[in-house]
Design a protein around this nucleic acid. Sequence first.
RNA 1: GUCCCGUUCGUCUAGCCCGGCCUAGGACACCAGGUUUUCAUCCUGGCGACAGGGGUUCGAAUCCCCUACGGGAUGCCA
Length: 465
Amino acid sequence: MVKGSILIMSNVRVRFAPSPTGFFHIGSARTALFNWLYARHTNGTFILRIEDTDKERNSDEFLQVIYNSLRWLGLDWDEGPQVGGDYGPYLQSQRNDIYQKYLKILADKGRTYEKDGAIWFKLEGERYTEYDEFAKKDIEKVRAKPQLIHDMIRGDVERAEDRDFVIYRANGEPVFHFVNVVDDIAMKITHVIRGEDHLSNTSKHCELFRAFGVEPPVFAHIPLILKQEGSGKMSKRDRGALIEEYQKDHYLPAAVRNYLCMLGWSPKDDREIMDIGEIIELFDFPGIQQKNARFDEKKMAFFNSEYVKALPLETLAWLARPILTEAGSITENTDEDYFQEVLMVAKPKISSLKDLPALLCYFFNENYATVEDAKNRVFKKGDPIARLTEALPALERLNDWTEDSIHAVYDAVASEKGQKNTDYFPVTRLAVSGLAGGPDLMPTLRVLGKEKVIARIRNFLEKNK
RNA sequence: GUCCCGUUCGUCUAGCCCGGCCUAGGACACCAGGUUUUCAUCCUGGCGACAGGGGUUCGAAUCCCCUACGGGAUGCCA
């Protein structure tokens, strides 16, 4: 916003309409994200509407998963459950009287009929009977006029429905296609941004819109997210498919959001790591890809590591504390200055919050394990035990425990024994941390302190005699 | 089966609408070299694509057609 200007809402109204029937899928997250981005880009309104018409498959817990995931990703809604709005209620299970009114409109126009206890929408056109390969039986079909779908991503698409379809089930509940269209009309939705799997449904929706005498909104069918390996779209069971996995693994939500933006949308230059404000400014339909995108967890992890590396120390400490506490590495008694110092030393190495306990536990605990792989690597060449033994007395004599003086000790011992100083480092790290890698060694030794370092080296030598 | 959508490096993409600047650019991944006190980081380099075939044109990744392949829909799920 330009400084001093008044924020003027545009008439763009978009909605994200999930169904609380399962977990919050990464594809749903991206659909929500694209709607949110378009609303923010246009100063429009982002509406959350819950499509819970199938009582059998809905649950309140799943509703909470939706709210929780959207909030975690920073996708705030302007109208919807929990925030209200002028077009509520925003749960379809509470909108039955509205649907009844709209049903009556169609009935009055002679566009409905009853069959098998359900209410069907009647297409207009010549009727005939044909064997249907998919249904494996004879079916009454209709030569209906093709519906024109104006799509911002696909261009104009024409598709004709050829069968009447149910809009109210025999159990009295309305069906998705019907409520979806009714609510889009009632909520004055201007742009329908949704997954391409709905493109084929859109001819049904256009039939309904036009039967109501309403011109359909502008559509934007975004490409699907395909699973990493194998064929087909990503499904709930695929690795990396659920937003809650990322929450659990301590991914940074801004990183997940940024990655999702780049999966199917491009700023048309070479930027990828982008501030969300910049993305909002640039986000529009021409930047949206037409082809399905395959999910790539390595690239997702890369985005995350970039965001983690960019974290200020204070924020990192704030995020790290509960993770390390949960892992049992630290307690509320852990010295704050020491904790800060450990993080400062380790920061250049931290690329994921999830790995924090494994990377840092030895700074806080004596019962760290020696990783077998690390040991094998260190012991692969030379005589590491001899090196460790040689350096120990010199370290014990050292009183000025600084990085420079510790380093000087190794230089001196190495030249005295005719070795390279790098022969001493891997085994020393292994002795004090149980690992083959980690933060720079000298700072690590300094932060651990002379007492711990000496004790751990002795202990290591004792165990590896 | 039918209908709809799509097809540039292994993956995400730029270029395509408005044909020449494309010996097709970037990123992830991978590989190699360098920096470094180990591992990592970092730096440099490498590998690597216009699905195929026909047109149109002086000229096509870009326009048209066909084929192949991929995806989706075809529920009283959403």
